[in-house]
């Protein structure tokens, strides 16, 4: 399978199953499009007719392009066959270790963000804080089920984790004790809205947190529209100076500023550029996922505008990088040269198998977005994963599990997509959240184009 598209002056051909990327001129672009379905002589006839006015396109030239395509095919770099399907169905028998836990240390929040998937931090349940004892057991559970893996990731999540800060600090101290005993290395991370950031938190985070995720939606009027305090005030002016101080004190590394865009700001690149103008360089901006009935829900009519925005973002990122003041956009981070192997590309994020979320009461869920839905309870940190049938279901939830993905060129980049989004959109973790797929495909097209541009390849026309 191949995918052909034109973007920013480049004619790009992605060979799906080899991972090869080609940049071609208009003649080669047309020849490749016909190659698998049309006899060579007919391709020659059509090309000579189409390019009749161009002196450099003659029969010998077209046949030379056909030869080049044949050579690439023989080398496995074009029209490569899908040889991974059987591999995908061995995944159920694969033994997995647990690599990461998301600790819900606080099911409560000091903001009331309208679009919060966690229902203002409560996850459709009661307000709660994780006790040190539950958190300690969670770390013990992770160590015990991590096999020979050394690096273990633990994210302090909520709600707002800074509302249970003393427990966070005690758990980090406990983890540091245990890692020496068990030859492990904890990489602690923190996801925060920033309201409670102060010098003490910043100093501790800089010392102990491998990464921090800072929630900011962009321009003040956009951010304050939906991210409001419990007293119904905007939070932008409270958090931005704190984020700037934190990022500066971390040397500009080990953080992401992460926003959500909605129907209210389909011009979301302006929010990303605003973040960059505030001095932040590690950026992420996600489309809101919610019921279509919500006033801030993205609509079908928004899609063309969103596609255009992703293209604007890509070309502006190339320009800014050349000018010496580039920034990183999470979804355009694409390592084509030494990126993930085919096993990782098929198996996806690891939810429900290598990654679990832990509630304040010690209950285990496939990921933070399933917390509160009892059907997806997997066990607890004392007894471990008891719902092994559900774990097997997540093991098999991969790039080859969804019939709707069969003809999608992007499935080895999304690994079949987010199980939680699929579940919330269709009622099944093997469903397809089509709106998200359309945005994902556009982002991958842009990300590949950036790689092509940064490799110094000539434009196609």
């Amino acid at each position: 399978m191949i995918h052909q598209y034109k973007l920013n002056g480049y004619n790009i051909v992605l060979d799906v199953y080899s991972g090869s990327v080609h940049v071609v001129d208009p003649l080669a672009y047309d020849v490749i499009a016909l190659y698998e379905t049309t006899p060579a002589d007919e391709i020659v006839r059509q090309m000579l007719e189409k390019y009749a006015g161009q002196p450099d396109v003659n029969e010998a030239e077209v046949r030379e392009v056909l030869d080049s395509v044949e050579q690439l095919k023989a080398a496995g770099k074009l029209f490569a066959p899908d040889q991974y399907e059987n591999m995908a169905f061995d995944f159920k028998n694969r033994s997995t270790v647990i690599k990461a836990l998301c600790l819900h240390v606080a099911h409560t929040c000091n903001l009331t963000c309208s679009y919060c998937f966690a229902s203002q931090g409560k996850y459709q349940g009661e307000r709660a804080l994780m006790s040190f004892e539950v958190g300690k057991q969670a770390l013990d559970f992770l160590i015990a089920h991590s096999g020979s893996r050394r690096n273990l990731e633990v994210d302090f999540f909520g709600g707002e984790p800074l509302m249970n800060w003393d427990v966070v600090k005690r758990l980090v101290a406990y983890g540091r004790e245990q890692e020496k005993i068990h030859n492990k290395k904890f990489r602690f991370t923190l996801t925060t809205n920033g309201v409670l950031l102060d010098d003490e938190v910043i100093e501790f985070a800089n010392r102990e947190m491998h990464n921090v995720v800072l929630s900011l939606d962009g321009r003040k009027e956009i951010h304050d529209r939906l991210r409001r305090t419990v007293n119904d005030k905007g939070s932008y002016d409270i958090i931005v100076p704190k984020f700037q101080k934190l990022v500066e004190s971390r040397g500009g590394q080990g953080y992401y500023v992460r926003g959500t865009f909605t129907h209210a700001n389909v011009d979301f690149t302006n929010d990303i550029f605003h973040m960059a103008d505030l001095g932040f360089t590690e950026l992420s901006m996600e489309p809101v996922v919610c019921s279509p009935d919500e006033p801030y829900a993205l609509t079908e009519e928004d899609l063309p505008k969103l596609f255009e925005q992703y293209e604007i973002l890509a070309t502006e990122m190339i320009r800014r990088k050349k000018a010496g003041h580039g920034f990183t956009f999470y979804h355009y981070m694409l390592d084509l040269k030494s990126g993930p192997c085919i096993y990782k590309r098929i198996s996806g994020c690891g939810s429900g198998t290598e990654y679990l979320a832990v509630t304040p009461w010690g209950e285990l869920y496939p990921c933070h977005q399933f917390v509160g839905d009892e059907k997806y309870s997997m066990g607890d940190v004392w007894r471990g994963v008891t719902n092994t049938a559900l774990r097997d279901e997540f093991k098999m939830c991969n790039a080859y599990a969804r019939p709707d993905c069969k003809d999608c060129w992007a499935r080895l980049y999304c690994s079949g997509g987010c199980a939680a989004n699929a579940y919330h959109a269709t009622g099944s973790i093997r469903g397809v959240y089509d709106y998200g797929c359309q945005l994902f495909r556009k982002r991958i097209e842009c990300a590949i184009m950036i790689q092509v541009a940064e490799a110094g390849m000539s434009k196609s026309e």
Binding site: Y17, S18, G19, S20, V21, H22, V23, V24, D25, L27, A28, V65, S68, V69, L72, G76, K77, A80, Q83, Y84, M87, T96, V97, K99, A100, R149, N151, E153, D335, L336, K337, S338, G339, P340, C341, I342, Y343, K344, R345, C349, G350, S351, E354, Y355, L412, Q451, V452, A455, M457, S458
Partner: peptide
């Protein structure tokens, strides 16, 4: 050149899986 090819990891070769990647 009519066809330029980017230097990319060969996925078929990558089938020849250490499992050390994070939840690359």
């Amino acid at each position: 050149n009519r066809i330029q090819t980017l230097d990319t990891r060969d996925l078929a070769q990558s089938a020849q899986g250490c499992g050390e990647c994070q939840t690359q």
